[in-house]
Amino acid sequence: MIEFKNVGLVYPNGTEGLKNINVTINEGEFVVIVGLSGAGKSTFIRSINRLVTPTSGSLLVDNEDILKYKGKNLRKLRTKVGMIFQNYNLVKRTNVFKNVLAGRLGHTGTLRSIFNLYSKEDKALAYNNLNRVNIAEKLYNRADELSGGQQQRVSIARVLTQKPKYILADEPVASLDPPTSHQVMTYLKKINKEDNITTIVNLHFIDMAMEYADRIIGMRAGEVVFDGPVSEVTEKTFEEIYGRSIREDDLRGGAQE
C-alpha cells in the first residue's frame, strides 16, 4: 500500500512540483495518472522510489515513511519498487541478457555483480522474464540493435527480474507508435493481473488511460484534481483535468484489431 499524506515538493528553483497530495494506492491496483506535461505526474511517480524527494508531508510505502530513507534502506525500497522509463534507459552497448540481469543488482553483492557471478536461479529468472515479453530470441543482441518497442519490452523484463512489489511506469509509451504502445500496455496490464503487482502508469493519452486503467488520478499544476474508478470517468472529466477541450493529439488511437 502506498499512502501520500499532505505531500508537497518544492524544487530548489522555487517551482512547486506537488501541492498537498493525499492519495492511497491499494495492493494490486492498476492506476493511471493523467495530466498535461508539467502537471506533476513524473514528480508524483518519482517520489515513490525517491528519485525525487518531497519536501513536506509523509509518504508511506507498506506503512513505513520513506522520505527519511538513506543508503541501504533507500536501495531496499528501490529493489521493491521497480521503474520503467519513457526512453527505456537500457545500457545500449551491453547485451539484452546483461541488461535484464541488472534488475538483480539490488539483490546481489557488489563483487558478485561486478564479476557477473549470478546464481543459476537469477539467470533462469531473467531468461523466463524475457520469454514472458516474447523477446528471448534477442538474448545476446546488443540493446541498441533493437527497435523502440523491443527495448521497452526488455526494460519490462528487467523490472520483472527485480521481483518488485510495485511497478512505476513514467510515460512508457510516449516514444512508441500506436500498435507498439498497445502491446506494451497489454504486457503491463497482464503482469499486473498475473503477478498481482501494483502498477502506476503515467500517460497523457486519454483513450489508453480509459482502456487499461482500473482507477484514474488526474493531475493539474501539481495538484490531484480527480481520483476515481475508470467507470466514473467521462470526456467531461478529462476536460476538467486538462482545463481545456479534448483534442485529436490527446488520443493515441490504433487499438489492436
Partner: peptide
C-alpha cells in the same frame, strides 16, 4: 541508464 540502475536498487 544510470538512473535506471539506481532505480533498480544498485
Amino acid at each position: 541508464p544510470l538512473e535506471a540502475m539506481r532505480a533498480s536498487g544498485g
